[in-house]
Design a protein around this nucleic acid. Structure first.
Length: 424
RNA sequence: GGAGAGAUGGCAGAGUGGUCGAAUGCGGCGGUCUUGAAAACCGUUGUGCGGCAACGUACCGGGGGUUCGAAUCCCUCUCUCUCCGCCA
């Protein structure tokens, strides 16, 4: 969430900037300011009452020690009213804090100045493209037919075991999947990211910390018995490593990578682009996460984009990089670049990565701060993350784009991992 | 799953109703000493909120209660450890 200070100091600026996200924040901002103002005066008043109570209690303590029971009892009479008053003030203050908080979390992150205006993904701006469009002869077959032809992914079997959107990878398909994971992790390691294997389930606090709760509750699988959530992305457990943490400035940037399966209910998206590997309830992804110094976070973002571009290039896929417009930017992001790869049989661009700078928006929720040397006050850090990469659509594009008469040709960089050159 | 013990500052570890935000040790930071370092000694060393500041206030796992006053007593939840059982 945004910091109160920012909203208090520049309310109009916040409102103006959020217009890029097609968000009319006028009312919210006004509400926040007025609730905060009353919160402050309540606190001042309550602190005064508590101070008086504390000093009376001390006096009573002293009187008791001196054996002056009567005087002490007299003082006690005065405390009753004070106590009641403090209780009322305390309740009001708690109420105001709750209200303030619920308003604050409704405000999305402020977009970076470079974010273009726009309503939907149609308004995203292509900033770069690369790779070579494959020119395939003969019948071009979509990946869901290829997976059947080579018997490498069984969607129906997954339906039998679990339900739609939980495919079973088999034989070279399974090996292909494992190869991609290992390749992505090795690349991330080479780029200086420390590998972590996080839990695949998180508690409420973690889901809240990265913003999945309360707004996206319905998108996560929830184990009610233990009140745990299956992670929709490694971002959740990995970023929450830093919840309530104060880092040293010299520790920044912190770079973590994690491979995890991801679980998404995808409620409300039935029937749309769900064919084959395009949209699954469980899929694999390698994520990269950085905690950066605020002054450096956009350099870091650029480096993360360059990093993702590097691995897409190694895979030999035609791709484009988009700068997301205000309307398509996620609630928590200040600036996001999407990577899409071209899938020749579907004749579609498929989103395979999303690289974002959240600035201090997540950090504020997480209470993730750093301390400058010699400086006493801890300051909110910036968090960034990106997919590097999400597997199913990469696999879909590789299957379709690399289909030959001999089978599916593996990209050069994967052969050491797959141990074979063709899926046939 | 059954029985017991426990949760205190970066860590270790005192504190069982009254100047306790909390002894002491370690660690960290600053200084003295030293050619430099170590040792020794001195000082300093949590976070949030309110306040221009002085300062006030809250926080001893979470929540609630008793009391003029709670780290300390009561209730409840969570977690950790030990033993037993079960098990990859």
């Amino acid at each position: 969430m945004l910091t109160l200070k920012l909203i208090q100091d520049n309310p109009q600026e916040v409102i103006d900037k959020l217009k890029i996200k097609n968000c009319n924040a006028q009312e919210l901002v006004n509400g926040i300011i007025s609730v905060d103002t009353s919160r402050k005066s309540l606190q001042t008043e309550l602190d005064g009452g508590l101070a008086e109570m504390n000093s009376i209690s001390k006096e009573i303590g002293i009187l008791f020690k001196e054996g002056k029971r009567d005087e002490a009892d007299k003082l006690k009479e005065r405390t009753a009213e004070l106590k009641e008053n403090n209780k009322i003030l305390g309740d009001k203050l708690a109420e105001a804090e709750k209200e303030l908080h619920s308003l604050l979390i409704q405000l999305p992150n402020i977009p970076h100045p470079s974010v273009p205006a726009g309503k939907s993904d149609a308004d995203n701006v292509e900033i770069r493209s690369g790779g070579v469009m494959p020119e395939l002869a003969g019948d071009i077959v979509p990946h869901w037919e290829l997976t059947k032809k080579y018997d490498i992914i069984d969607f129906e079997l997954g339906t039998k075991l679990t339900g739609a959107g939980f495919p079973v990878y088999k034989g070279k398909g399974a090996r292909f999947q494992r190869a991609l994971i290992a390749f992505f992790l090795d690349e991330a390691n080479k780029a200086g990211y420390t590998e972590v294997v996080p839990p695949l389930m998180v508690n409420e606090d973690s889901a809240y910390g990265t913003g999945q709760l309360p707004d996206k509750e319905g998108q996560m699988y929830h184990c009610t018995e233990d009140n745990l959530y299956l992670i929709p992305t490694a971002e959740v457990p990995v970023t929450n490593i830093f919840r309530d943490v104060i880092l040293d400035a010299k520790q920044l940037p912190v770079k973590y990578t994690a491979y995890t399966p991801c679980f998404r209910r995808e409620a409300g998206s039935y029937g749309k682009d769900v064919r084959g590997l395009n949209r699954l309830h469980q899929f694999d992804k390698v994520e990269v996460v950085q905690v950066a110094h605020p002054d450096k976070s956009y350099e870091v973002l650029d480096s993360m984009v360059a990093y993702v571009e590097g691995i897409v290039n190694k895979l030999g896929l035609p791709y484009r990089v988009l700068r997301l417009c205000g309307g398509d930017l996620s609630f928590t992001s200040a600036l996001t670049f999407d990577f899409e790869v071209y899938s020749v049989a579907q004749e579609k661009w498929l989103e395979v990565s999303s690289v974002s700078n959240f600035e201090s928006y997540q950090a504020n929720r997480l209470k993730l701060r750093y301390r400058e040397e010699g400086n006493k006050k801890p300051v909110l850090a910036h968090t960034l993350n990106g997919s590097a990469l999400a597997l199913p659509r990469i696999m879909a594009a590789l299957l379709e784009n690399n289909q030959t008469e001999k089978g599916i040709r593996m990209p050069e960089c994967l052969i050491p991992y797959t141990g074979f050159e063709y899926i046939d």
